[in-house]
Design a protein around this nucleic acid. Structure first.
Lengths: 234, 234
DNA sequence: AAAATAAGATGAAAAAATGCATTTTTCTAT
DNA sequence: ATAGAAAAATGCATTTTTTCATCTTATTTT
């Protein structure tokens, strides 16, 4: 992220979905207070948006791009909790109970993000219950998704987990049966909770069996039915 | 749970921790409204307190006992998310965003539970921000714990996962180095995310190696250091 | 108290997953 | 455009985990 980005307005707030949602619960004048203490930033692929363990000072709204939420353990191994496409509220996992970021968030492709000051946000939320409820809803929704994701992973074998990951990326991230990965095999393995080799082997097998068409970063789902069956059976 | 329990007062509200917390944020008169629409219940070991998929009508406060949160998948396989000891707020996982229970909660030993009406709770919370924030804090805290638990499981092998489960039960549930399990080996396996046999084998191995003293339901931690090391290494 | 059922334990074979060595391909920086 | 680095692919040996069969020990039920 270069200094110049701090000065240039990346996108117009008037078309912002977060503003749209917020203004259902507050007066434009009130939103203006929020806007004033917010900063628009660009992040290049691979750059850190929020860092686990750092003081949580902002809630972030992802305007454009794809990010990964991940947890870094003591041994430096990562675990991807979820991968999210814009538009989406990110980084609020601990808005209301922790002062440190529980997870890291990193750009998986070039992103545009609006960093919203937490102090002001809380201030407004404290005198505006419906807004507070809405934020709460978005934050707990994120938690819920992560947990359901973990549950999926927890009692399936690698076959089913990788099928899941592909189905998820296809339906919720790239929104197409044929997409170009912006994630490495290593990242897929951190999402599926297995070794990198296992991801590669499994993708090769799916390719050999005609379920997927895998060519490097390009992935096409050939046999959706069978992929879904593998996901179900585990 | 027998009908008679609906009429007998199981315990006194004046000593209730939930009342204590709540009354930091509301007048006793207001709390009285909440109390009036709440019901005290007893659950025997194995009984269902909340059922996944059912309409979420109550927030529950666990006065006494131990419960398990679990998710039932389509194939009828269970996955235990967490095991919690009283006193604790339970079943609020979806207070603010879902109308159905996301998980089931079951008594792992005899329990006393206060079922708090959600409609009234929300009503009060809507005009009492500090109370709303407190509830929010408790609810997201639960989510956070579950996720951190999953993270622990996700990149450890069975050895480390079982060490984790034992350490967790010892420190957070039974609160002793020597305890009598109220869970079956099958339940432990649903918590650790592995086969029942693997739990049995691993516990036997830990016993053989002098790390634990396992005799049926009785478990004693002999070598805490080594157990913690196994948990760390994975 | 005996019978029936469920839970726990053990060992061995089969399946799944990891780790390693090596090669090929792709990406990046100069 | 090319060298160097990183990522992807492949095959194999090893380890981990599951599954299955059998047996013992608890716990319920009648």
């Amino acid at each position: 992220m270069s200094i110049s980005d701090l000065h240039s307005k990346v996108y117009n707030c008037d078309t912002c979905l977060f503003k749209l949602i917020s203004c259902q619960y507050m007066e434009p004048v009130e939103f203006e207070k929020l806007r004033k203490v917010s900063v628009q930033l660009r992040f290049k692929k691979g750059e850190a948006i929020l860092k686990q363990g750092a003081r949580a000072t902002h809630l972030a709204f992802l305007q454009k791009g794809i990010v990964k939420f991940y947890y870094e353990d003591e041994k430096g191994k990562n675990l991807i909790l979820t991968i999210t496409k814009s538009p989406s509220l990110i980084g609020g996992a601990n808005v209301f109970n922790e002062s440190m970021n529980l997870f890291s968030i990193q750009a998986v492709e070039d992103c545009e993000v609006c960093m919203i000051d937490l102090v002001m946000l809380k201030e407004i939320a404290m005198v505006n219950n419906r807004f507070l409820m809405k934020i709460l809803e978005m934050v707990t929704g994120m938690f819920k998704d992560s947990i359901l994701n973990f549950i999926n992973l927890a009692h399936k074998q690698v076959n089913g987990r990788i099928a899941d990951v592909i189905l998820y990326l296809s339906s919720s991230v790239y929104r197409s049966q044929h997409f170009t990965l912006t994630l490495t095999r290593k990242e897929l393995s951190e999402f599926a909770g297995c070794s990198t080799e296992n991801v590669i082997h499994t993708l090769s097998r799916f390719h050999r069996e005609g379920i997927l068409n895998v060519k490097g970063k390009s992935i096409e789902i050939n046999d959706l039915d069978r992929l879904q069956r593998i996901s179900k059976v585990g």
